[in-house]
Write a protein that binds this DNA or RNA. Structure first.
Lengths: 213, 213
DNA sequence: TCGCATCTCATGGAAATCCATGCATGGATT
DNA sequence: AATCCATGCATGGATTTCCATGAGATGCGA
């Protein structure tokens, strides 16, 4: 397939390798951008697309594994490590930290391409997850402080009456907050809101004992 | 700490290693059981405790990595690989498949113990997760076929009226099924039921558009 | 054949939710 | 000062949920 909506970043200090990899990728119909050091990669303006990072372990400025750790937080693309002098502890650390593969030179084009495809597929999935979560967070930010207090009580399964008592306000007022929360979060139903709260990792405060009515 | 409620399994064909590891573990206050082959391990009666499996890659009957794959399904303890002749692809494969660590001989006692502690901690967590999920599944099995049809509709956020229409039955009947579901599942509230359904990976069928009245 | 589980439905009432309209206060912004 | 926003409350009604009681039909296993 090789949709053109994807890109591969290459970080390697050896220019011949950068060129060889770039050519390989282009010949597979993929866009590639190469960097000679971790710093260049970090500072570059990178297109916002499903991507993959081919990362040499041995870099002039910082170690590839350290770069991995630094960019671990935040939406960076999955990494495929390549190295000329790999050792087992490094490979273990790399994979433990989420690298898709750890290839030692010489490796076959096929192995590399397999890893790249896997990495990009993974990134597509991750990006889609992140996009959804980011939308939710955005909506959550639109809630007023009081509404943010109401949300966890509601998704805990408390009755309006109970939640109102919890906050020391009247049931009517709580109902209004509750409706505002539903509306602002774009929840079609309480079930929906509960699932949103789950994804936002909003903790359950109290749980209702079926009191009944 | 080294709670005594835990155990370490050792699978290695070298008796001297089995004895050395056993001694090391006992000296750290942990129970250990050693096996000379994958087959012995598989067929053995193993205590049901938080555990860890120290697995030699090179075994007489089957490869340690293949054993890992075979026991991947089901509640087997996290694996710490040890090997005398490790290579990077093996280590990558092992970690990708969830191994906690991949140590090459000679390794320090400290490194091994660190890995073991991590593995056991991970197993404790996994077991706790599994226990909860297994309880849910057990309850789910107590539902009648009709109740299992009602559950996804309810947690989708449909009104009783809508869910009833979906099944072509009266609203009253659906209410009864719904209540039975709540009771059998031990859900204190709809929010609770939604979360249970999430954990059981029960798919959402329809979603309600806020029509409401 | 009897008993049991399952699925079905009705009536009827108590409680809770959903919603609209209207109003008031206090703080921040314009 | 005027306006907006967040917060708070009330009344009142439509809709929905929750629950109990009662009851009929089907199918399966003892």
């Amino acid at each position: 397939m090789t949709t053109d909506e994807q890109i591969v970043f290459i970080v390697d200090d050896d220019q011949r390798i950068r060129e060889a990899l770039s050519e390989l990728l282009v010949s597979h119909g993929m866009r590639a951008i190469a960097f000679g050091s971790a710093g260049e990669y970090i500072n570059a303006d990178k297109p916002d697309l499903p991507a993959c990072l081919i990362l040499d372990v041995e870099l002039p400025d910082i170690n590839g594994l350290d770069l991995q750790r630094e960019i671990a937080v935040g939406g960076h693309p999955p990494i495929v490590f390549i190295t000329g002098h790999g050792d087992i502890p490094s490979s273990v650390r790399a994979i433990k930290h989420g690298a898709v593969d750890f290839l030692t030179k010489p490796f076959s084009d096929a192995d590399l391409m397999t890893a790249i495809h896997a990495a990009i597929a993974q990134d597509r999935e991750q990006r889609s997850q992140r996009a959804g979560l980011s939308l939710l967070r955005q909506r959550y930010l639109e809630l007023t402080p009081r509404e943010r207090e109401v949300l966890p009580l509601v998704v805990s399964g408390l009755l309006n009456k109970q939640a109102a008592a919890e906050l020391g306000i009247s049931e009517v007022t709580l109902e209004i907050h509750r409706r505002n929360v539903m509306q602002k979060m774009g929840a079609a139903s309480l079930a929906d809101l509960v699932r949103m709260a789950e994804r936002l990792e909003i903790p359950i405060t109290h749980s209702r004992r079926s009191g009944g009515g």
